[in-house]
Design a protein around this nucleic acid. Structure first.
Length: 512
RNA sequence: GGGUCGUUAACUCAGUCGGUAGAGUAUCUGCCUUUUAAGCAGAGAGUCGUGCGUUCGAGUCGCACACGACCCA
């Protein structure tokens, strides 16, 4: 990691001091750019090389200096603002000796304001001939090299601000992320969904099976858990009469990190009364294919070298069908609970004592099928055993009216027709708690209030969760979840301390 | 938790058999008023991730640790 007293940093500070001594405000807050670079570019389109803008209008722009070519009495540099990039031409003649002397202390990385007139250079690049210069923020640290940029991923994650300055692809990814979320809200709002905010701190973590983060409220003297899912609160709103609700916000899971897992991640959850999981499959393929088209201009995308066709309709198959068709399992084996269990053992799957054939089947699916589902595929009929909140299928109580969506071998969404029978719900909670009872880290407590809510009557409904981070990964061709989260979690950075002449011991005040 | 790889100048990277640390960019100085990876000449810049060990001698070999990447659980 970077050291804090290097030659290059000293030089930058000395330069800043020299500039201040010339009477320049290094951090002025008076310059207000009247123009954005993007809107200037068309204004000079018609000009030929070496021609001046005939209107002779003075424009003003502000931004960061990203490259610099200095001569003895002139210079070119590129200025970048939020909208684009443009060349500025500086001439000693037109600025005067004093101003030009201060300009000589400008560096790549400085944020500056420019006023001037448009012209085209010999090589035909539209530029601003500066007649006024304002230092807005003097940069004290050098930017990464102009040609290779910043390639060290650790620095890109830890110092995302530098990454955003010098890596246009990174900027583009996060712009797309913002756009995807904005479009999602628009899509759902257009269908009558209302966006709500439910608690992030839960007295009882529920709605999923995961290890929660624990915290404590001092005034109430009670433990709280960062939510692992908003599901049980959103369903309470269905009880309350809000028929279409959604929430886009963070979930927290105290588990491992990987290219697909960040301890906090963003989830869209939405619930629609009087709908079934079939309705949500229609809605999901419409939503995601539309998002791809809006953001990438196509439904046929490439993810890490693999072509993926997001154009509807998408494949729909039951878990049994997937095991038979994709994994080549004998249908007879799937209908016999003992043979399912045996098959799982055969494939090296280690099952917990309480696990039944539903769990075994799901594990087989995860092992043998998941990674092979490249194009979007809805897998339905999940075993009831692994779906404690989903409605049982009317014809076969062993499976639920549930689907998960897989794209590029990864789970992207999970949805089901909701269980609204309070008696069944209570039974399933009790069973779930009995099974997880030995795992202290998975906090098991029956959410009595949720059952009470169901007892008031929750309309038939279907609900779904879509992992936003993974969706953004797919639509931006990003290999790691850290590439789509602005500030991903890493271990604490060990900053190298500059050696001091004496290590003064800090006096530690004793507790009185 | 296990395995593999990585960590050298501000950035991007070389560094042979273990023998006094290299380049490009950036920076500084000089020249340079249409350049755009500007150019020419010169200069400075390093606790080689940290620690211990082997050795006459370690960026290089060994061990431990830290951080990161990928794979596996």
């Amino acid at each position: 990691m970077s050291k804090e007293n290097t030659q290059i940093l000293k030089q930058r500070r000395e330069k800043a001091d020299a500039l201040a001594n010339l009477g320049v405000n290094l951090y002025s807050n008076t310059f207000k750019p009247a123009n954005r670079i993007k809107e200037l570019l068309p204004k000079g389109e018609h000009l030929v090389a070496e021609a001046q803008d005939e209107t002779n209008y003075t424009y003003s722009v502000a931004g960061r200096i990203m490259s610099m070519r200095k001569f003895g009495k002139a210079a070119f540099f590129h200025l970048v603002d939020n909208s684009g990039r443009m060349q500025v031409y500086i001439k000693k003649d037109s600025l005067g000796d004093e101003i030009f002397a201060t300009f000589k202390k400008w560096d790549i990385g400085d944020i500056v304001g420019i006023e001037g007139k448009l012209f085209k250079t010999k090589t035909g690049e539209l530029s601003i001939m500066a007649d006024k210069l304002v230092m807005i923020s003097k940069s004290l640290r050098p930017l990464p090299e102009k040609f290779h940029g910043l390639t060290d991923v650790e620095t890109r994650y830890r110092q995302r601000y530098v990454d955003l300055i010098v890596t246009p692809e990174s900027q583009e990814t996060f712009r797309k992320r913002v756009e995807i979320v904005r479009l999602m809200r628009e899509f759902l709002a257009n269908r009558g969904f209302m966006e709500v905010e439910t608690p992030m701190m839960h007295p009882i973590p529920g709605g999923a099976t995961a290890k929660p983060f624990k915290t404590h409220h001092n005034a109430l003297d009670m433990d709280l858990y960062l939510r692992i899912a908003p599901e049980l609160y959103l369903k309470r709103l269905l009880v309350g009469g809000f028929e279409r609700v959604f929430e886009i916000n963070r979930n927290f899971r105290n588990e491992g990190l990987s290219t697909r897992h960040n301890p906090e991640f963003t989830m869209l959850e939405f619930y629609q009364a009087y709908a079934t999981y079939h309705d949500l499959m229609d809605l999901t393929e419409e939503l995601i294919s539309w998002l791809s088209d809006e953001v990438n201009g196509t439904m046929e995308i490439e993810y890490q070298g693999t072509k993926v066709n997001l154009a509807p309709p998408w494949k729909r198959m039951t878990m049994d069908e997937a095991l038979i068709e994709v994994a080549g399992i004998n249908p007879a084996d799937l209908n016999d609970p003992d043979r399912v269990m045996a098959l799982a053992k055969e494939k090296g799957i280690q099952l917990e004592e309480q696990a039944g054939p539903g769990k075994a089947k799901t594990e087989l699916f995860e092992l043998l099928v998941e990674e092979k589902l490249i194009h979007p595929t809805f897998v339905t009929s999940y075993p009831t055993e692994v779906s404690p909140l989903a409605r049982r299928n009317e014809d076969n109580p062993d499976v639920t009216d549930r689907f998960e969506l897989f794209v590029t071998g990864r789970e992207l969404a999970n949805a089901f027709s909701e269980l609204n029978d309070p008696v069944d719900q209570l039974r399933r909670f009790e069973k779930q708690i009995a099974e997880k009872g030995d795992d202290e880290e998975i906090h098991s407590e029956l959410d009595v209030d949720f059952v009470r809510a169901l007892e008031y009557g929750m309309p038939s409904a279907a609900g779904e969760g879509i992992g936003i981070d993974r969706l953004v990964m797919l639509l931006t061709d990003s290999p790691s979840i850290r590439d789509v989260i602005l500030f991903p979690h890493l271990k604490a950075e060990v900053l190298k301390q500059t050696k001091k002449k004496k290590n003064k011991k800090k006096s530690v005040p004793k507790d009185v």
